[in-house]
Design a protein around this nucleic acid. Structure first.
Lengths: 207, 207
DNA sequence: CCTGTACATGTCATCGTCTACATGTCCGCG
DNA sequence: CGCGGACATGTAGACGATGACATGTACAGG
């Protein structure tokens, strides 16, 4: 449940409303963990019930600002220190690559070129942003420095993917004529060939 | 809905059962898109109802092998060619980095060292696997070559993250005494206070 | 022949997440 | 003074994902 700890982490910087948090979540963390406002509001309600946050003040338009409690701060620190990192990640770009062999080579070239452009642009944007931090435009607080570290990861990942798309575009692995035209195999010689039961299949249960 | 197209993509290689698909999904795609067997079985049922796949044969222990239909093949190709890539991704490692400032510097050093080791090991394992492909141990089918391309992305990402963890470990951004000890700001100087439109937004790290 | 293990498929409850809808407030502008 | 737009918070329903539980089959080894 990363949303919970993400909200606690943001509130550790100082009080904020659900609206603020939704905005900040999508700006700062949105590219590594999407979260819409309904989820945030309901999670905040749950966190308040659990005593990890409390209402700090109410503002102009029904605005409720939350503050993290000592228990909440302890909880987010406990999470960071004790809970093991889940290294599985979701990335559609990479997921699709497993199925490139189904694509028309022309389409694939186009696809890779646009992916390359996207990652290069994203990397450049992040690098520009990082430079403003390095110049000290955002102060030198611990938060800013942590954000700079996170930013660096984003830069490196996007650069890596831009390089990958470039490499894929240039490699001859996908140029042969069997890309995009392949038909699925039929019958017994399929995916499970070699496994004990594989060949016993067709109509095996007639006996 | 990536699971749907992932299953279609795997079935495009040839007939397979839910059990096979669950195994292959976790082996090949599990690190970029987790999926447990209950989800796979129910998705297969839905795909069959939709006419995108059909039962090819039944085997020994209730085994049902599915085959992709022409409509299914058309659908997965349409997805690859027409549906835009969703570039948001989920990665807890990176998510946590935004909150490094809350960690004790000692714990953080340890954390980064173990992350670095993890990514380096993963990259090495993938690289070893890629080399067996390059030697032709798996044949030279279009699928194998597509998998090689996907593998390359995995290698580069893991290497990038290993390099990042190394860099973060060595940088002095996180060594200062304010890491891990910071307290949330109080009241008026925070993201917002109660007064009618104190809301010029002092938000330190935005944009 | 019995028994453990891997094979193989499913249900169920719960929770997380997303889209769409609903409501109301404050402020600036004409 | 009326109105549009940004602010601000929510609800409802559907769908996706997870973990626990349930069931039954084939086969290998003792």
């Amino acid at each position: 449940m990363s949303l919970r700890h993400g909200l606690l982490g943001l509130l550790a910087e100082g009080p904020a409303s659900g609206y603020d948090l939704a905005r900040r979540f999508s700006e700062a963390l949105g590219s590594v963990w999407p979260a819409q406002h309904p989820q945030i509001y309901s999670e905040l309600a749950r966190l308040e019930t659990a005593g990890l946050i409390e209402v700090e003040s109410t503002g102009p338009r029904r605005r409720k600002a939350y503050r993290i409690t000592d228990e909440g701060l302890a909880e987010v620190r406990r999470w960071l220190a004790e809970v093991e990192v889940d290294h599985t990640f979701r990335m559609e770009t990479l997921f699709r690559a497993y199925f490139f062999w189904l694509m028309d080579p022309e389409d694939l070239k186009t696809h890779l070129a646009s992916e390359q452009a996207f990652f290069a642009e994203t990397a450049a944007a992040l690098r520009g942003y990082a430079e403003t931090k390095d110049r000290g435009d955002w102060g030198t607080s611990a938060q800013t420095r942590a954000m700079r570290i996170a930013l660096e990861a984003g830069i490196r990942i996007n650069e890596a993917l831009a390089g990958w798309a470039q490499w894929a575009h240039e490699t001859d692995l996908m140029t042969a004529e069997d890309f995009g035209t392949a038909k699925p195999k039929e019958g017994a010689d399929s995916l499970d060939a070699g496994s004990p039961d594989a060949n016993a299949n067709a109509d095996a249960d007639e006996r």
